[in-house]
Design a protein around this nucleic acid. Structure first.
Lengths: 193, 193
DNA sequence: GTCTATAAGGTGATAGAC
DNA sequence: GTCTATCACCTTATAGAC
């Protein structure tokens, strides 16, 4: 699945062939079929694995801060260290979204995970409203979808162009500035190390 | 090119075949080769066309407002009416970015256009600094890349899930709220109608 | 400028030996 | 569980009639 993630994050689904993935994993294409019944199944298993692992980190980060700002800063901080080892595949994340829209049946588990992501961001938005940083009449769902899109798709797109550690830290700090109005250090995360 | 844009915005490059595009345009696959020498060339021509048209609208929108907030609001307002007719292809935009990263030589014209987009957003950021809404030590380039990513990739991803006119208006208003702190009506644009 | 027919090349998946 | 060999299918692109 790691080899698949690497390949699927560098080219679109149809352009990645089983030989490429197998080579990355040190075997031949046919051997993959001892572990996954099809290319589709490998893609879905990999995407679900990545999404599940990152969901746990997302939940912990959001719960870690006393204010919505610090919680959100902790979410952004995940990308600096790639805490889970599965956060640096933004193009794979986009590919999953595209295929999910095209084929909702095959991606029912992914759709459930996506709803959990949105729920996490909805919690963040609710806290921002309670703390007086967003008006009470904001649509919690739309604001949550947007925050999630800003982080995973927007920031992800920028990180595709700028990949050095220094640049990623700058991207994260600037995103925090644009979205929360300040660069708040993600203290709880740092204590984890 | 319109037919190609429709198809390329609904599935990834390799999953769209020439017959699909031709059918959308009312011909057979072979006929396309009287207009474009290859599938790649058709994709690039379509992407460049879309990008150029939207760049003109982006420039006008950014220049239209007295403050950076109103300029940015005008940019967001473009998506409500799809002023150019070429703004509702967010998945095509993402696909272009992926292929551009993979094959920089073939996309040299697109890379030039992308730099012009960034320059437009850099102007917006500079004005925000001058107006005291962003600190002077912000990286103009990174902030501009992020704003662009938030709008085209972040908001685009949300619009892929919510496509009704009402939802798009709500997405745009909420994005304005999250990124500028207020929902500012894009007056100059409205006067254009 | 569009069509039908087809060549040429690549890929997912399977069979069967080890 | 991995390999080699191969099948079956699909797609881009071209040839040549109209």
């Amino acid at each position: 699945m790691r080899a698949a993630a690497v390949q699927f994050s560098q080219a679109e689904f149809s352009e990645v062939n089983m030989e490429d993935i197998a080579a990355e994993a040190g075997m031949t294409g046919a051997a993959i079929y001892n572990h996954f019944p099809s290319k589709d199944a490998l893609f879905i298993a990999t995407a679900n694995h990545m999404t599940q692992i990152n969901l746990v980190a997302l939940k912990r980060a959001i719960e870690s801060g006393p204010t919505w700002r610090s919680g959100f800063a902790a979410v952004l901080a995940l990308f600096v260290d790639d805490t889970t080892g599965w956060l640096r595949y933004p193009l794979l994340t986009s590919a999953v979204q595209l295929k999910m829209l095209q084929n909702r049946e095959k991606f029912d588990e992914m759709l459930g995970l996506r709803r959990e992501y949105v729920a996490q961001f909805e919690g963040l938005v609710s806290r921002a409203v309670a703390e007086g940083d967003l008006p009470a009449d904001v649509s919690t769902n739309v604001a949550a979808e947007l925050l999630m899109g800003f982080v995973f798709n927007g920031m992800g797109a920028v990180m595709s162009h700028m990949r050095s550690e220094r640049e990623i830290r700058q991207i994260v700090d600037t995103a925090s500035l644009l979205l929360t109005g300040s660069v708040e250090p993600a203290l709880p995360n740092k204590l984890d190390r």
